[in-house]
């Protein structure tokens, strides 16, 4: 299909979302990636990321559900409009994508905002007495 050529995909994407929105999305993704790498390489970074994991998942879930609701609202449809596997896949894919994307972007941001301490598993073990001190 000619729509699936690089020029076609680009032209349709530009018409659908506009260059500013595409650029903003790209900038957010890039900033998230840089933050990810920076935090992961920093001292105590892994502990920070572990601490921020569940809140990031929660944010992703909220965004995913919000995306699903928004998609139905934008298309003036209801769940009863979905008719078959294809419809459900097409409906759930953007919601899941938005949720996962939001979680991945939120994760390093939350890791930066949260204190490094807070979880037993993230503290270094103290050698000698065989116990983990918290």
């Amino acid at each position: 299909m000619d729509m699936l050529t690089p020029a076609g995909i680009l032209g349709i994407s530009l018409a659908l979302f506009g260059l500013p929105l595409i650029a903003a999305g790209g900038a957010v993704a890039l900033a998230g990636l840089i933050a990810w790498i920076g935090i992961a390489r920093a001292e105590g970074g892994r502990a920070r990321l572990c601490a921020a994991r569940l809140p990031a998942v929660a944010i992703g879930a909220v965004v995913g559900v919000g995306m699903a609701v928004a998609l139905l609202a934008a298309t003036q449809s209801g769940l009863s409009s979905l008719n078959g596997v294809l419809d459900w896949v097409v409906f759930l894919a953007p919601a899941a994508g938005a949720g996962v994307g939001a979680a991945l972007v939120a994760w390093p941001v939350l890791a930066l905002l949260r204190p490094a301490s807070g979880r037993p598993a993230q503290q270094p073990a103290v050698e000698g007495d065989g116990l983990r001190h918290v």
Binding site: D2, M3, G8, G11, I12, A15, L16
Partner: peptide, 11 residues
């Protein structure tokens, strides 16, 4: 969106 891309000669 496809229509607008068509007007631009992209699809």
């Amino acid at each position: 969106a496809v229509y607008e891309a068509m007007l631009g000669g992209w699809v």
